[in-house]
Design a binder for these strands. Structure first.
Lengths: 194, 194
DNA sequence: GTCTATAGAATGATAGAC
DNA sequence: GTCTATCATTCTATAGAC
């Protein structure tokens, strides 16, 4: 029997409680200091254990970064699947974008790291499962074109959201209000439902 | 005699040739690996000298990062002064934005670092001269409002530019074409001349 | 302005006991 | 799952000669 619908999910093994504690601490530290600016000692201190205990959960620092990126990308998987289910490519993008706005607001603090940290950028391009996921994401984001205009539009859309959500100027705006404003401005850039 | 028009310029001492070589190498490396991911050894190797020679030009790594940020922000100074000279705040923003697009395209590779690297973000907020410069920049970017809507708009504008310019999807689009596309999308968000 | 040499701390990572 | 102890390497930074 040929394998069914290849699922978009990225998750490897389910994470133990100890692993989850490490990933939570790592995400917070990395969001504040970047991947290279975060040491295993800092992570261990934040969890309240020694470095050796952290190394028992993940063999290398890279594995922590991969696991944490995986966990965050997985939050996009449902949105991406819903988008890919749409027949109309423009409609697919609408679905994706509205979901992405919500996720971005939910993860305000971490968005910038995940999109712009040089280590993660490299990982996204070189680690095969990520690369595949990202190119699906770009596919849905491109709408119905692939020319220069469409690519600039897609690039902008992927960035505007994260930037709009993490910018110091909007730090004191609460989630619900921010969401409304961002969606309003997004409608000026592309068609969005409602 | 009271001091004349406070200039926007950030530059301290003019840089020697040796200092310029260090800053050029540092900017390129930091753009690729981030501040924390770039060591003085890497910079020294790129320049073709030893670490000690680099330390002779700048007392600390922080000083290098400050000098290099200073140099990049200075490129915005003229645009900011021109904007502040305008009486109409909306017109001032137009002037600023068109200049910023050009600069962003010119420095495509470095934009992301300067806007999103955690070390530089912190520097921009804590180093006094930078903090002052940035708040002037935000002032001009805000146009005539200061409420939540205006702040989200400003955040989106600053995001459109940087993201549209550095995204992998647009890497192969040449400067002139990219410039036209970006300006076209910016006009959907705000009024821009021509 | 550049070098060699080095100090002292922190880094990622491992071995082995409990 | 966590610890102590350790290793080799790299890091920022300095002293002093040329």
């Amino acid at each position: 029997m040929v394998s069914a619908e290849p699922t978009v999910r990225l998750t490897g093994a389910p994470r133990s409680a100890a692993q989850t504690r490490v990933l939570d601490a790592a995400l917070e530290l990395i969001s504040a200091h970047g991947v290279s600016g975060t040491s295993l000692q800092m992570i261990a201190d934040a969890v309240g254990v020694t470095k050796a205990a952290v190394y028992h959960q993940f063999k290398t620092k890279d594995e922590i970064v991969i696991a944490l990126t995986e966990r965050e990308l997985d939050r996009l998987a449902d949105a991406l699947e819903a988008a890919e289910a749409e027949e109309d490519r423009v409609r697919a993008r609408e679905v994706l974008l509205t979901c992405v706005v919500d996720l971005a607001i939910e993860r305000r603090g971490a968005v910038s790291t995940l999109q712009f940290d040089p280590v993660i950028v490299r990982l996204l391009a070189e680690h095969k499962p990520f690369e595949q996921f990202i190119s699906r994401l770009y596919g849905a984001l491109l709408g119905d074109g692939t020319g220069a205009a469409a690519r600039v539009e897609a690039a902008m859309l992927s960035g505007v959201i994260s930037t709009a959500v993490m910018h110091p100027l909007v730090a004191d705006i609460d989630d619900d209000e921010l969401r409304e404003h961002v969606l309003r401005y997004m409608r000026r850039l592309v068609d969005l439902p409602e």
